[in-house]
């Protein structure tokens, strides 16, 4: 009696959240999977009378040079802005800040957090101004006699990478700050006494100790970056040409501009699979901490 009572209670408590998750989160993911094997369109005849087309969308995708280009762009963007850019800068900041006064720590922390608290559309505007031909970067370089450059046109990928480093470094910085704070002082001291140099201290002592945090952080920043849409879309629109078209942007264009929903969902599935793999790595990396 008491047991069934408790069971009902558990179900009643958990049901509202679970229903919402299943309806709005889980079901669309399953539908995406099913639709990716059809030729469904957003409007017109094939919006209702769509057909099962097997893996045609996937075959088409990997034969589509623009999709391949968007995939390469995504990887370049991911690697240089998040995996390398945000993490290396975040780590350096965290490392340098360790022995600084509270005052320096809060100034630097606040400056870096500015990017983090700025909504992504505003990040785009800020960098639209920064990289513009008549923008801040060119006027600064002009002081040294450097001729103005069309950054958003000729170096569009570099521009979105820098914008994303600006936006996301705070996260890695805070993660590494707490990881570094966890290194026992004795480990460093022992290494000093053994005459270990600065570089070796980093590679032989610090990095091995915080390896877990690095893995966790890498998966998290990757997951945060892989679906990034607004920042790139508002800053470059994926252009010039397809230079900054990442998978989310190409997916959006195919689904909502070209109305090929089936094709668009196939791309979504690729994105999702990538996210699933990373999510599993993330869970595994947390397992020893749980």
């Amino acid at each position: 009696m008491n047991n069934t009572n408790q069971k009902t209670k558990i179900i009643a408590f958990m049901a509202p959240a679970m229903i919402l998750i299943v309806l709005f989160y889980f079901a669309p993911a399953i539908m995406a999977f099913l639709y990716s094997f059809t030729d469904k369109a957003l409007v017109g005849i094939t919006s209702k009378n769509y057909h099962f087309t097997g893996i045609q969308n996937y075959v088409k995708m990997f034969k589509d040079p623009r999709f391949i280009e968007s995939l390469i762009n995504t990887i370049v963007f991911l690697l240089f802005s998040a995996v390398i850019g945000q993490q290396v800068l975040g780590f350096i900041l965290a490392q340098l800040m360790q022995k600084q006064s509270k005052f320096i720590q809060s100034i630097v922390g606040l400056a870096v957090l500015l990017g983090w608290v700025t909504p992504e559309v505003v990040v785009s505007f800020v960098f639209f101004a920064f990289f513009n031909t008549t923008g801040s970067l060119n006027s600064f370089l002009g002081l040294f006699g450097v001729a103005p450059k069309a950054w958003l046109f000729d170096y569009a990928m570099v521009a979105i990478i820098l914008a994303n480093i600006w936006r996301g470094t705070a996260f890695s910085m805070l993660m590494f700050q707490s990881a570094l704070a966890g290194i026992p002082q004795e480990a460093r001291e022992a290494a000093w006494l053994d005459g270990v140099g600065r570089f070796q201290m980093l590679t032989k002592i610090i990095i091995p100790i915080i390896k877990g945090s690095i893995v966790t952080n890498t998966t998290l920043v990757t997951l945060q970056t892989i679906g990034l849409f607004g920042l790139i879309y508002a800053l470059t629109g994926g252009g010039p040409g397809y230079d900054t078209t990442t998978v989310p942007i190409y997916m959006y264009q195919k689904s909502f501009v070209a109305y090929q929903l089936g094709y668009g969902t196939a791309m979504a599935i690729i994105l999702l699979l990538f996210g699933i793999c990373l999510s599993l790595i993330y869970m595994k990396s947390l397992k020893h901490e749980l």
């Binding site: 989160y25 079901a27 998966t219 679906g227 990034l228 849409f229 997916m251 969902t265 999702l272 999510s279």
Partner: peptide
């Protein structure tokens, strides 16, 4: 708990197209 953690990581961007279809 693991399923919840797993869902946490997924990029929302990837499910927006089907969500749009369902809502439509």
């Amino acid at each position: 708990m693991y399923s919840l953690l797993f869902l946490t990581g997924l990029p929302i961007t990837a499910i927006m197209v089907p969500v749009y279809m369902v809502f439509f």
